[in-house]
């Protein structure tokens, strides 16, 4: 499990310190930028999982400007506004940048983490998952975001053993635990678009890197964690075709 890397744009040192301390306490890696230029540089140099923006920076709505830049450059980073501004004018402007969510000051710590959860959910279009139930996770092409000890952490998708259909949605089985993803298996496959994840049964998607043994005659796959996955005839043929080594 890895911690999330956050960039906080906040001009007031006192508040920035408070946020940083609090987020660090909850297993987040926080970088603070005090000006828009500072923030731009830091975005270029480092990878961030999320950006928290104050709207008014030194009396100018630079938070909104930065949000517009993030959209224009298609950085694909979720961001949220954390602000004491209640002017409808700025809210309307901010709304045009389609932020994941807003949080109004004064806020309490629970609300901040909740907002981070909402931001991740909305960004990856899997609403009411993380914030709703700790068993839920949000899937992105590279990471799985999960709840851990009142915090949010991420797992690399390589750590997934297999994905199994559970009713409408999918269950994700990894070394770190099982998580529910509010997406259909087809959507999951589409989202991952990773050749390592191969469908072996209409209900199963398997990380081929985690396969220990395959029994073609018994239509069975055994993974590293000893999970037994059925191998259907239909997908077997495709599997053999795609993997020359087996021929």
């Amino acid at each position: 499990m890895k911690t999330l890397r956050l960039l906080v744009l906040e001009d007031e040192d006192e508040e920035a310190k408070e946020i940083s301390e609090f987020l660090s306490d909850h297993n987040f890696e926080v970088t603070r930028a005090s000006t828009i230029q500072d923030a731009e540089r830091k975005i270029q140099d480092h990878f961030f999982d999320m950006i928290i923006l104050d709207i008014m920076i030194d009396g100018k709505p630079d938070g909104i400007v930065l949000a517009q830049q993030i959209n224009e450059q298609q950085l694909n980073i979720p961001f949220l506004f954390l602000t004491s501004t209640q002017s409808k004018h700025f809210f309307d402007l901010a709304k045009l940048t389609q932020p994941a969510t807003y949080l109004l000051k004064p806020y309490n710590t629970l609300e901040l983490i909740f907002s981070i959860e909402l931001a991740i959910e909305k960004h990856y279009k899997q609403s009411n998952t993380l914030s709703f139930n700790s068993e839920n996770a949000v899937l992105s092409p590279t990471y799985i975001f999960v709840k851990k000890n009142k915090s949010v952490m991420k797992l690399a998708i390589e750590s997934i053993h297999y994905i199994e259909v559970k009713e409408k949605y999918c269950n994700l089985i990894s070394k770190e635990g099982n998580f529910l993803i509010k997406l259909s298996l087809i959507k999951v496959k589409e989202l991952l678009s990773n050749p390592d994840f191969t469908q072996v049964h209409r209900n199963f998607l398997v990380n081929i890197k985690k396969i220990k043994e395959i029994y073609f005659e018994d239509n069975l796959i055994i993974l590293e964690n000893d999970a037994k996955i059925p191998f259907s005839e239909r997908y077997k043929a495709l599997f053999i075709k795609d993997n020359d080594i087996l021929n």
Binding site: Q86, S87, K88, F91, Y102, S127, N128, S131
Partner: peptide, 11 residues
């Protein structure tokens, strides 16, 4: 009518 108001579905 300046209050920002946007209903959404939340837990």
């Amino acid at each position: 009518e300046q209050l920002f108001f946007e209903p959404e579905t939340y837990p």
